[in-house]
Write a protein that binds this DNA or RNA. Structure first.
Lengths: 226, 226
DNA sequence: ATTAAACTAGGTATAAACACCTGATTTTCA
DNA sequence: TGAAAATCAGGTGTTTATACCTAGTTTAAT
């Protein structure tokens, strides 16, 4: 029987070891490598002589994340099938991963059986999506037909001034305060804020703060408990 | 040899299964139960006849999280040793867990060996902290000596209801919307929000959102650029 | 040189947030 | 059982944020 060569990419050692033991119980699986970030994974793939058939790829990894790593590896080695295995289940992540070349998407809240099944299916047929993910993809196809505007808005990057204002909003300043700091009229600040709300599709400042932190436009200290 | 009875509490099935296989290789470990949230864990502990010696507790769980579950279980069953096993490594979380009764704190980015070692140590001596965590605790003791005022304010933990409100504020809901969702008067929500502003020393919702994210009371999915 | 975008700023309104009160239940815990 | 904390909710008023407009000036790029 031809064994399936597998690489595991995840930043949590415990998770790697755990899933490794799970998969090693399958006689036709062969775990050939474990790696804790995307950079090392790309390095490994570019140098190895023994290419994996499957990469189990976490999204959240230091240095280079799973999406970037998938993009690179899929371009240079399209034969290697990549299965996203992560705890993030939002539409954007799933479609994003599939866009950049993932052959499957599994939520960590799945069963060992499903992981094994997915690996076998991807190995045989080249792709596999479970029901949850299929539903999400389906919804996305439907909604993407009528809502080009939304993604267009996403593409519109924030201007310098808007970022200035966003930073000050996140620093808990009011419109008047921001106006004083930037030497402009409060009305202008309001204008910028309204544009920010539009561009980030937020409802209020709470949304802006979350956007800023997500996009790392704003730095927050992980812990300020003195 | 007396076996150590272990319960695993984590919302990710894959992680539970993985660590279960890792631990089952140890002859003196006996995994007696797996559970995916704090509510079910508390239920189980209150009904079972076979008490665990050790609970491996994740912090991020639906329904009732690891901190709350630890608080309850430590109070009702102080003999059960609880080991926090999570990916959150911030000071506040560590000290918080120890405050509510955790006997140890492990980051998921650790080795299987360390988990096994920790379980054995906790089982024998009642507690165990690795170097990383000890350093953090130490830093915390040092800094807390001179800054009583601040830490007193920090000690004022948010109440359940306040956390409910904070979550909804971070989800960009208005006072009226929150009131409807929680089936209380908008005035009450305002009261909670004002208490939140006081307790977190914030100026406005921006500060609340940042606080929620810092303390990981709110989950935000990181952004993996498009 | 022309055009698009960014930056600026004003008018007019309403909705929401924030401040500072008070006080009545209920829960929790020593 | 008694005190403290949490939860609920109301009054009154000010400040900010948000919505929907218009429109002039500057800046950057083709």
């Amino acid at each position: 029987m031809k064994k399936i060569n597998i690489v595991i990419a995840d930043d949590e050692e415990l998770f790697r070891k755990g899933i490794r033991f799970l998969l090693e119980r399958e006689p036709n699986f062969n775990i050939i490598y474990e790696v804790e970030n995307g950079k090392k994974l790309i390095d490994y793939i570019s140098k190895t002589e023994e290419f994996p058939d499957i990469i189990l790829m976490d999204l959240k990894m230091p240095e280079i994340n799973g999406v970037e790593a998938t993009k690179v590896i899929h371009k240079t080695h399209p034969d290697i099938k990549i299965i996203a295995l992560t705890s993030f289940g939002s539409k954007s992540f799933i479609t994003n991963m599939i866009d950049v070349g993932a052959s499957s998407y599994l939520l960590k809240d799945t069963t060992p059986k499903m992981v094994i099944h997915t690996i076998n299916e991807v190995s045989e047929k080249g792709f596999y999506y479970d029901e949850k993910v299929l539903t999400i993809i389906h919804e996305n196809i439907i909604s993407s037909s009528g809502k080009r505007i939304k993604s267009d808005l996403d593409k519109k990057l924030l201007s310098k001034r808007e970022i200035d204002v966003l930073e000050l909003i996140c620093a808990q300043h009011t419109t008047t305060e921001i106006a004083e700091k930037l030497f402009i009229s409060p009305r202008t600040v309001e204008g910028h804020r309204n544009n920010l709300l539009l561009k980030t599709q937020s409802k209020n400042v709470a949304g802006l703060v979350i956007y800023g932190i997500q996009k790392k436009l704003i730095e927050i200290t992980p812990d300020f408990n003195l």
